[in-house]
Design a protein around this nucleic acid. Structure first.
Lengths: 228, 228
DNA sequence: GCAAAAGTGTTAAACATACACCCATGA
DNA sequence: TCATGGGTGTATGTTTAACACTTTTGC
């Protein structure tokens, strides 16, 4: 144990699945690769873990570099370590999932030709095994919306119940009853904090504005159900 | 990008959280370290990922080496990559969770002084950051029992409803109503397959014996509730 | 017979769904 | 005044928790 032959040349990277709700679609942040391999292909943003930084810190740093924002919800998604997933060398990649509100079009990353929001339904043929990582991230996000308060992570600081409902409808691809959804989310203690303000930006009667509360889990959970 | 300086000397390992229900306690498989650092301390079994093998394959291999069994449920738990978690060098470790029936006392591993089942309540002061990894594994196991069929992974090939209930009671640390539990698990389609046999090994009226079914998820989930 | 555990039936309360209905605003 | 979306009330059906009760074994 612990002889030099035990330490083959591994590189460790982080890959980021950054999701947002834009228009009518769940979108992922992708970058166009400027170098071989997979030059010109879409890929997940990411990069190498530095010697002195934790893997988590590398994810936070890359996220900030690619989106220009910080403070997003960030959680580890999984680690992908097949021997030939990168044709040049042995790379083990730790994937992270971030949920973002509808940010302005992201700045082009430091070493990426272009960065853009792409609807997840149109994102395929990505570089490396990123199709699979993105799929895992979307699946995780869908599942977490059921029993955690993460739906609010897709909303801006102040939001209406209808805006939160739209997040659920788009991420799950279903229709939800506005009346029952309203009662459900306002009934979960600690999920929403009323600001006292209201807005009529959605048309019709002004809706109350809320901020995220402290609740992390949903009791009872919201359950996916088909609509009309 | 991709210059030699991007590849600092990372070692990649796997660590295994192997859990079982033994007697009245949830137990983890631990090994006594035979070498520095942390010589003499309890640690999670694990080892280095080989150059040509996938991370998942390394976990399967180590599990088989440490327990002598294969075919257990094995899932990725998370990756731990703090810079100083191993005092000698930069090590990134991918942790896996395995759930096992009450196996015979494990064989001593190839490079471990001793291997033993230790109740998770008594397992602290482990080597490296293994306290945290073990805690995360136990938490994951508890959560997964709610909405997946993994409780049966703790049972031997043929088991009674009462034995499955004991798994839930011990892992969650609660009491469950035997009548309602029986109705619930036998009502989930594909969870249990009746063998037609019965046993009176638990005393009282003989209980029907079941095998694991094909169901992976529980609809509806079992929910933790406090008992008397 | 008695204790112990398996398994079934029943009931009341909690919850979810569907939808009727009223409210507040912009055009 | 009408269209649009916000929000409340309520009837109906489903799920669940609690527990009374019957069954089948060992001693």
């Amino acid at each position: 144990m612990y002889t030099p032959s035990d330490f083959p040349p591994f590189a460790v990277t982080v890959d980021l699945v950054v999701l947002t709700v834009r228009g009518d679609a769940l979108c992922a942040l992708l970058v166009r690769r400027g170098e071989a391999p997979y030059r010109g292909r879409w890929a997940l943003p990411g990069g190498f873990v530095q010697v002195a930084e934790s893997v988590e810190a590398a994810a936070v740093r890359e996220l900030s570099e690619e989106t220009g924002v910080s403070g997003l919800h960030l959680e580890q998604l999984g680690t992908y370590g097949e021997p030939r997933r990168d044709p040049r060398m042995r790379v083990v990649s730790v994937a992270y999932l971030a949920l973002a509100p509808d940010l302005p079009v992201p700045v082009a990353g430091t070493d990426a030709a272009a960065a853009s929001w792409v609807p997840v339904g149109e994102a395929s043929g990505l570089a490396f095994d990123h199709d699979r990582i993105l799929g895992d991230g979307v699946e995780r996000a869908r599942a977490k919306l059921e029993y955690t308060a993460l739906g609010t992570a897709f909303c801006s600081a102040e939001f209406t119940v209808a805006e939160l409902r739209r997040v659920y409808e788009i991420v799950w691809g279903v229709s939800l009853d506005p009346r029952n959804f309203h009662r459900k989310v306002t009934g979960v203690e600690g999920l929403l904090v009323a600001t006292g303000e209201s807005t009529s930006r959605d048309g019709g009667r002004p809706a109350a504005l809320f901020r995220r509360g402290v609740a992390e889990v949903l009791h009872p959970p919201l359950v996916r159900a088909p609509g009309p």
